[in-house]
C-alpha cells in the first residue's frame, strides 16, 4: 500500500454502493485524481463535509489498483459553504468545476496552472467582489489560455492586420474584413474590450462594463469554450445571471 499526500479541489462526486462516493479531485501536484471516499454518505462519517464539491482540501490517499482511496482529509477552505448560499454564484461555480474537469484530460497528469487558476477563480467567486458571470467568463478565457487556446483579441487572428471587423471562433479570435469567414459574428467593440480585460485581469474595466456587453461577451466566450473543448458544458444551461 503506497500512501501519498496532496492538496486539491473536489470537482465532483458520484454515489458508489451503499454509503461510498467516488470523488474527482484536481490536485496541485498529482493532477486529476479519481478516488473512493468510503462511508462518506453516512451522517457519522469522519470526512463530513470535507469532500463536498468546491472544497479545497488537504488529502492523504493510498494508491489502489483502479481507484485510489482517500484515507484522511482536512479542509483548507470550504468554498461550497459560501457558494451554495448564493444561487447565481453556485451555478457559475459548477460551470467552473465542470470546465476544469474537461480541460484536464488524463488522470494523474500534473496541471498546476489549471489548479491555481481554479482556486483563484473559486476564491474570487466566493468573496463576491465581482459579478458571478464576469468571474466565470474570466475563468473560461484564462483556463483556455493555459490550455493553449487563448483567443487573439488585439489584431486579426489570421493576418495580424490591426483593423478588427468580427469575431470568428474557427479563426481563434477577432478577424479583419478581408479574413472574415462566413458565419462570424460582429460584436460591439466594447465587448471585445471586455473579453481582453477579463483575459488580462483588468477588473476595473470589467466591473465598469455595461450589461449588454457582458451578455454578448458571455455568449461568445461560451461558444468559444465549447468549440475548443469539442464538448458541451452541461452546467452552462443552468447558469443564472445576477440581477443588475
Amino acid at each position: 500500500m503506497s500512501l501519498y499526500r496532496d492538496e486539491g479541489v473536489v470537482l465532483r462526486t458520484q454515489k458508489l454502493g451503499e454509503a461510498d462516493r467516488i470523488v474527482t479531485i484536481l490536485a496541485k501536484r498529482t493532477g486529476k485524481i479519481r478516488a473512493v471516499a468510503k462511508g462518506v454518505r453516512r451522517t457519522t462519517s469522519r470526512f463530513g463535509a470535507r469532500l463536498e464539491p468546491f472544497t479545497h482540501v488537504d488529502l492523504q490517499l493510498h494508491t489502489g489498483r483502479t481507484l485510489d482511496v482517500v484515507t484522511q482529509a482536512e479542509t483548507l477552505r470550504p468554498y461550497g459553504e459560501a457558494l451554495a448560499a448564493d444561487y447565481p454564484r453556485y451555478t457559475a461555480g459548477t460551470a467552473m468545476l465542470e470546465t476544469a474537469d474537461r480541460l484536464t484530460h488524463g488522470e494523474k497528469e500534473p496541471a498546476l496552472r489549471q489548479f491555481l487558476l481554479l482556486v483563484g477563480g473559486l476564491r474570487t467567486l466566493a468573496d463576491r467582489d465581482h459579478e458571478a458571470r464576469l468571474v466565470l467568463d474570466a475563468y473560461f478565457l484564462r483556463s483556455l489560455a493555459v490550455a493553449g487556446y487563448a483567443p487573439v483579441l488585439d489584431a486579426c487572428a489570421k493576418c495580424r492586420a490591426p483593423a478588427i471587423r468580427a469575431f470568428a471562433i474557427v479563426a481563434g479570435g477577432v478577424v479583419c474584413g478581408a479574413c472574415k469567414p462566413s458565419g462570424s459574428v460582429v460584436p460591439a467593440g466594447e465587448t471585445i474590450g471586455l473579453m481582453a480585460a477579463l483575459l488580462r485581469g483588468d477588473w476595473a474595466l470589467a466591473d465598469a462594463s455595461e450589461s449588454r456587453h457582458r451578455g454578448e461577451c458571455s455568449g461568445l466566450v461560451a461558444a468559444y469554450l465549447q468549440w475548443h473543448l469539442e464538448h458541451g458544458i452541461r452546467s452552462l444551461r443552468h447558469v443564472e445571471r445576477e440581477p443588475a
Binding site: T44, F47, A49, E52, P78, E81
Partner: peptide, 16 residues
C-alpha cells in the same frame, strides 16, 4: 454534530 460522535472528528463546516 451527529449524536454518538466525537467532537474532534467533526469537520470545520459541520462544527461551524
Amino acid at each position: 454534530l451527529p449524536v454518538g460522535g466525537d467532537l474532534e472528528y467533526a469537520d470545520e463546516v459541520t462544527l461551524g
